[in-house]
Amino acid sequence: MDIKGSYTFDAPASRVWELLMDPAAIAGCIPGCRELSPLGEDRYRAVLVVPVSAITGNYTGTIAVTDKVPLQSYRLNVEGNGRGGFVRGQTAITLTDAGAQTIVAVDGQVQVGGAIARVGQRLLEGVSRMLMDQFYACLKNKAAVAPPV
């Protein structure tokens, strides 16, 4: 499943980049994230509870940042496993300077397996998009607030 999105941040690229690389900010914005602990450089162990009320379930997995080109682009690889199955995502994230704003483009692929793929395909695209939208909406809010000095 392909997943694409574009999010306009009211902040310069430097600020957006800083947020995107900040584990605390990310952990605070990943929907349902209960824990994000470092596993090494640019690799994290994540524990999350899918925040869709009927489909609650614990997932544990890893998040890795690769191919970093500061202020411009990086790749985010996510792997998670839970009772409902597994999720793997590879996304390319690109930042584009637009004056006072920064456009963050997300272009990725998500593979889902197990019961959620087998019996939940009807909602997969929608849930993926909803969670991604929530994540970037949260980050946009953080970006709009002036960073602590």
Partner: peptide
């Protein structure tokens, strides 16, 4: 099946 070989019509809901 999707590209990775997951059966997406795995129940009578699909």
């Amino acid at each position: 099946y999707d590209d990775s070989g997951q059966l997406l019509t795995g129940s009578l809901a699909d």
